[in-house]
Design a protein around this nucleic acid. Structure first.
Lengths: 191, 191
DNA sequence: TCCTTCTATGCAACTCGTTGCATAGCCAAG
DNA sequence: CTTGGCTATGCAACGAGTTGCATAGAAGGA
């Protein structure tokens, strides 16, 4: 049910339409949670029905009307309650790791190419996050005294950056390991 | 559909029952993929029906009979095909990050306690992974010349270790940030 | 002019994953 | 002797998430 809470946080940071939320989920919120527009529209409707959100129809020029959602009293209460409940620390779900272990039973070259491709994607993401950090938090154009909300957004972004750096380093380790196994002396140990 | 493939890899490494698979998913495979026994039993049944797996009833003494699954020809082919297909690099899904951003709109102390609790869990996991590494790969009792499968299992485990270390360091950053915001110079209003 | 892209919302069908419950024999601790 | 834990399998119901499709006006390029 964390999608509901992610929406509450995002709408508290700034009210917006389903479409705008979907775009935020591709950007800042997307550092740690993903959602498609279908999911978002469905959940928004449910949350409105439950009285957690308020809607306002906004007519626009040159583009379709939109429904701007904002957090109502019960929505804020629901978020507060969730913040006080313990949640399960979650575990990784990384299919690439499944592929890597699967390489022992198939052509390792195919897996190698896949690992290289993933490395490029993570490298691009890192560059994107670093650009965002410079723009919003550490660059000259960023607001100098950050408020609480911005500081917390920054620390979450630093988490995304750390994750990408760790992943890239690990994928380098994976590449080196597969190379060693296929070209180098078979069955030497490293450490 | 990666659960199917994770099961194929695990059964290629060693055939076993649904129950045994469920326990592996709490251990080694669980470093990067989780699954409950319900899911596993359901998927095993489907895979057997699709001809990917072979079953063998095994009578045991002092405990219930079990069904030992192993990978059949079509199962191996299905894995091979998947290994040659590109997959989407996945993104994080971290509800703790939602909570951290949510702390701007509620009592930060509650979130602080939650972060500390998660830090302990990740710390325990790291210790557990390191013990496993020593036991299976780097310790004196480990088989000295590791084979390909073991080397690949090791590099995946190193990924789990790197993930836990990164996460712990990040949570320390989060703790320091929240402390700074609440005790240090109160720069202010959030909302 | 047509084709694509962007804004904006939504339905329907499906698969994936979780939670609660049920069975059943064995073993060990209190 | 009863309670709880371990091995071992499974059903049913629900909620979460994905994929394909549909609508519709405005803007901009080939």
């Amino acid at each position: 049910m964390a999608l509901e809470h992610a929406i509450l946080v995002s709408l508290l940071e700034k009210p917006g339409s389903g479409y705008e939320l979907a775009r935020r989920f591709e950007r800042s919120i997307g550092y740690f949670w993903t959602a498609t527009h279908q999911q978002i529209y469905r959940v928004l409707k449910r949350m409105e029905g439950d009285g957690l959100l308020a809607v306002r129809e906004v007519a626009q020029e040159g583009r379709p009307d939109k429904k701007e959602y904002s957090v109502a009293g019960p929505g804020r209460a629901a978020l507060s309650q969730w913040l006080h409940e313990p949640i399960e620390p979650e575990s990784l779900r990384h299919d690439l790791a499944v592929k890597i272990r699967g390489a022992a039973f198939d052509d390792p070259a195919a897996v190698l190419r896949e690992v290289e491709r993933h490395r490029r994607v993570h490298s691009d993401r890192l560059a994107h996050y670093l650009a965002g950090e410079l723009r919003d938090f550490t660059g000259p154009a960023a607001p100098a005294p950050l408020d609480t909300g911005q500081e917390l957004q920054h620390v979450v972004l630093r988490g995304g950056i750390a994750y990408e750096r760790m992943t890239i380093a690990w994928l380098d380790d994976v590449l080196a390991t597969i190379h060693r196994l296929s070209t180098g002396s078979p069955t030497t140990d490293d450490h």
